[in-house]
């Protein structure tokens, strides 16, 4: 198939960016979206135009490195990561707009690459259980109710791609935060630090300039791992409890 691609190009963080239009012919529907961009880059390289920078690593939907705004939707029209989106979701003659994640907490580094280290900083501010190596009791010391273990797992599948932030009209990272708060809060091992964790992570979230949540729900529909909005409620509940406890 033949496509018209409108792609955001920006040389550096401080440079002014703009949309550029490219024509690409011979796209097969078996290609993944990123393979389609690989083909475009080969073509650009051959015609002495610098290839488009975009992030990807595992290309099997688990590492969270890829993430493009495709036709105004984070990761495109399907519920999956950009790398798992295939060209059979498009048709001959389509015009596709491709932009980077846009949030001031995620500055553009070049073209479609953004800096998501703000997500790491939130984890640094409490998104862990303090268990030094070697200090652990036997794994069977604390049984975990299956229901809780399953819920913890379901929300622990967050891949940290940032699609929730990209899709949120407020630029909030509440879904990301809520997923980690819920994961660790469901487990007995996560209880001792539960209230400090939520205060620490939320403060860092606000400090890094993410927006506040108004429960619109675009985040959950953009999430390739289908993390539900429940986790934001859980986040709020934990935050409220933590404030009552005076942390």
């Amino acid at each position: 198939m033949k496509l018209t691609l409108k792609i955001w190009r920006q040389a550096t963080t401080d440079a002014t960016g703009a949309m550029h239009t490219y024509q690409l012919d011979g796209v097969s529907e078996d290609m993944s979206f990123l393979e389609m961009l690989d083909v475009l880059n080969e073509q650009l390289n051959a015609s002495d135009e610098e290839p488009i920078a975009f992030d990807s690593d595992c290309r099997e939907g688990i590492c969270g490195m890829c993430g493009l705004m495709i036709n105004g939707q984070a990761h495109g029209p399907e519920v999956t990561t950009t790398c798992q989106l295939h060209m059979r979701s498009f048709k001959d003659g389509d015009e596709i707009t491709i932009e980077p994640w846009r949030a001031d907490a995620f500055p553009v580094l070049k073209d479609l690459c953004v800096d998501r280290s703000a997500l790491d900083r939130m984890i640094q501010s409490g998104g862990y259980i303090s268990a030094n190596t070697g200090s652990a009791p036997d794994a069977h010391a604390a049984p975990v109710e299956k229901k809780k273990a399953d819920r913890a797992f379901d929300v622990a599948t967050c891949i940290g791609c940032g699609a929730c932030v990209a899709a949120c009209p407020n630029g909030s990272a509440s879904l990301f935060l809520g997923a980690k708060i819920t994961h660790l809060g469901e487990l007995p091992q996560g209880q001792p630090e539960r209230w400090d964790r939520v205060i620490g992570m939320v403060s860092q979230h606000d400090h890094d300039g993410f927006g506040g949540c108004t429960n619109i729900g675009e985040c959950a529909s953009a999430c390739p791992k289908e993390i539900p909005l429940d986790v934001i409620s859980q986040l709020n509940k934990d935050l409220r409890t933590a404030m009552v406890k005076g942390r």
Binding site: Q73, E99, D104, A105, N170, G209, F210, G211, G217, E218
Partner: peptide, 22 residues
């Protein structure tokens, strides 16, 4: 406050943005 935070959180707007299910 929320509106101001939201506008500061994304000073460069999308050229094209679609809402999925909200």
């Amino acid at each position: 406050i929320l509106a101001r935070r939201a506008s500061r959180a994304r000073t460069t707007k999308y050229q094209y943005k679609k809402n999925k299910h909200s």
